[in-house]
Simulated scan of single mutants.
Amino acid sequence: MIIYTFPVRTAFIDRDLEMIGPVSAIKSLEFTQSPLKLPFFFVLQFFQLLWYLPKTSQYLCFFGGYHSVLPAWFGRVFGKKCTIQAGGTDCINMPEIGYGNFRKKWLRKATVYSFKNCSLILPVAEALVKQDYRYDPKISPKQGLLNLIPDLKTPIQVIPNGFDTEYWRDLGKERKPFSFISVATGTSHPARAIVKGYDLIEKLAENHPDWTFTLVGDSAYVSPNSNVLVLGKMNPAELLNSYNSHQFYLQLSTSEGFPNALGEAMACGCVPIGSAVGAIPEIIGETGLILFQKDPKMLNSLIFTLFNESSKVSPQVARLRILTHFSFKNRRDALLKALNLY
C-alpha cells in the first residue's frame, strides 16, 4: 500500500489518486496548513504512519514541507521508498512577495530535510529544479531546488502534469470577444493575489473598460474594476462551461510550478496569455503570448500584437498543444514507472 501525504486536498491529488488507484492500494493522509495545528498533526501523522507501517510499500508526498518530514524519516529508518512531487512553493524563495517555503526558517528546515532524505524527487516543471529567474527584477534570480539546496544529492526526474482532454474540450460555443478568464484560490489574501498576477489583470481591466474579466476561485476577492466578475470555486462542469465562454486565459503569475488551470483552459480552446515563469512558457509554446517581464505597458502592447496575428488566436492550436505534449496518459505512465508500478 502507498501512503500519500499532502498539506491540502487539491485537483492535483485527485488526479494522482485516479492514476494510481487502479494499479495499487493507496491511502491518502491529509496534513494541515495551520501553524497552530502543526504539533497535533505531527503526533497524529506519526501514529498514522506507525499504524499503517506493516502494510506500507512506499510513501508519496505532494510538495515538500512539514507533512513530508515523517514520511521521509520513516522511509529512511524502515527501508521504504519515499517520493516527493515538487509542485512550486517548495522550490521557491521569494520573501519580496511573501512566497515560498524557503523564506520561513522552520518550514525551510523541514523542506530541506525532506528533499535530502527522500528517495526520489518528481518536480512538475524543469524550472523547479534550477532556474535563473528574470520575470520580476526585484526578486532574487536564484530559484529552484539546486540553487536553494546546493548539496542536494537526491535523484530528480521531471514529470509534467497531464490533462484529460476528453473531458476538457472545446464545446464549440460562441465566445465573447475580448473576454479573459483566470482561475486561482486564496486570492483574497493580497500576497497570494500578487503571486497569481491579479495586480496585472486589474491594471488591464482599468485600462480597457470595454474588455471583460472573470476571476474564479475566491469569492472573497474584491476588485476595484466594474468589468471584473469575481466568482468562487467551481466544480469541473462549471469550469468547463466557463472556459468555453471566454476567448483568452490569463496566467500572469509572479511564480508558478505547473498551473493546472492553464492546461485545462487551453484544452478547452482558450488562447493563453502567460508570464515567463515556471512551466508556463513550456505549456503555451507558440500558441499564445508570453510576457517576459512584469510590465503592464509591455503586456498591453503584446496583447494587441496577438490580436493582429489571427493565426495565433486559434482555439484549435491551443488545444492541440495540450493533446500533443501534456496528455493524461503521458503523465500516468511516467508517474507509475517512477513509482515502480508500471
Rank of each mutant, 00 (worst) to 15 (best):
G88E: 03
K130P: 03
K297L: 07
L120A: 03
K203E: 07
F304S: 14
Y243G: 04
L229Y: 00
S119E: 04
R108T: 09
N235Q: 03
G232N: 07
V183R: 08
G217P: 02
F31E: 01
P35N: 03
E174N: 11
T111Q: 09
Y243K: 09
I26N: 10
E238Y: 09
T32C: 09
K142W: 10
V271E: 13
A276S: 14
L128T: 04
S68N: 05
S253L: 07
P209E: 00
F62Y: 11
F62T: 10
V313H: 15
K109I: 09
G172Y: 08
D16H: 15
T212N: 03
N244F: 01
L262M: 14
K81T: 13
Q293L: 02
P95Y: 00
A25T: 11
K329S: 15
I156N: 01
A193P: 11
F62R: 07
K27R: 15
E30Q: 12
S34E: 09
S140Q: 14
F213C: 04
S310R: 14
I20Y: 12
A220V: 00
I280G: 14
T10M: 10
F180A: 07
S179K: 05
A318L: 07
D132Y: 13
L171A: 06
I194W: 00
I283H: 11
Y59L: 03
T5F: 01
N227M: 10
F6V: 03
N241Y: 00
M234A: 09
L299E: 03
G274P: 08
R332Y: 09
K196M: 00
I2V: 12
Q251W: 06
N308K: 13
E206N: 00
E202H: 00
P272V: 05
L146E: 11
L70H: 08
E174A: 10
D132S: 13
K80N: 08
T287S: 15
G288N: 11
S223Q: 01
Q247I: 01
D14S: 15
P177C: 02
L320I: 08
A110D: 06
I280H: 12
T214K: 02
V43T: 13
S327K: 12
T254V: 13
C268A: 13
I26M: 12
F304G: 15
P150W: 09
L336P: 15
D170P: 05
D218A: 02
Y249A: 13
S24D: 15
V317E: 15
T154K: 03
L29I: 14
H325V: 13
A86D: 02
N300Y: 07
G64C: 06
A276F: 03
R76M: 11
A318N: 12
N225C: 02
R192L: 00
G232A: 09
G257I: 06
R169N: 00
Y133D: 04
L323W: 06
K297G: 06
L122H: 02
Y221C: 01
V216F: 00
I181D: 12
A184L: 06
R332E: 15
P137W: 02
I156S: 10
F63I: 07
F47G: 08
D151C: 12
R134S: 15
N300C: 05
Y135T: 02
Y66E: 05
P54H: 11
N93K: 11
P35D: 05
G197K: 03
P160A: 14
I322Y: 10
T212P: 01
N235E: 13
C61R: 05
L44T: 10
F258T: 05
Q251Y: 11
G285L: 06
G64P: 08
W51H: 10
Y113T: 05
F213K: 01
